[in-house]
């Protein structure tokens, strides 16, 4: 599993698209989905997880197991996650937004532990963390 992470609008998707080139991949933009699909075999890219969780969940355990189920069902070697870092701003006033930040933060710790490769993207530049 390869995780690309960084702040919003830093060019993460663009970077991954360029990296994949002509390679066949299932690209899942989860932001508009009500349910995560069962991942296909081969290269799968999952992006927009934060807004998916925000729209469909409000209980941390359920949110985490939803994502972990997806991750465990995919081919571990060819799964790509695009994760937006949302944990470094001012604490939100809205309770659901605070919930989302906390959930994503803890979920990311679990995902990062499982990832074979981690790349941080900063305005289109990449740094290998692992």
């Amino acid at each position: 599993m390869h995780i690309f992470f960084g702040g919003a609008h830093n060019g993460k998707r663009e970077y991954v698209k360029r990296l994949l080139g002509e390679k066949e991949a299932e690209w899942i933009e989860a932001g508009g989905l009500e349910k995560l699909p069962h991942p296909r075999r081969g290269t799968v890219v999952l992006a927009g997880m934060e807004s998916y969780l925000s729209k469909n969940h409000s209980v941390e355990e359920e949110a985490v197991s939803d994502v972990m189920r997806f991750v465990d069902a995919a081919d571990r070697d060819s799964l790509v996650l695009i994760i937006t870092d949302i944990g470094r701003g001012i604490v939100p006033v809205d309770a659901h937004e605070r919930w989302l930040r906390d959930t994503c933060g803890r979920l990311n710790q679990r995902l990062f532990k499982k990832a074979g490769r981690i790349t941080r993207i900063w305005y289109g530049l990449a740094e290998e963390i692992r």
């Binding site: 702040g7 807004s51 470094r88 701003g89 001012i90 939100p92 809205d94 937004e97 989302l100």
Partner: peptide, 10 residues
């Protein structure tokens, strides 16, 4: 400034 590491604003 680095200001983009937070949830998208309402």
């Amino acid at each position: 400034n680095e200001v983009l590491d937070e949830p998208s604003s309402g």
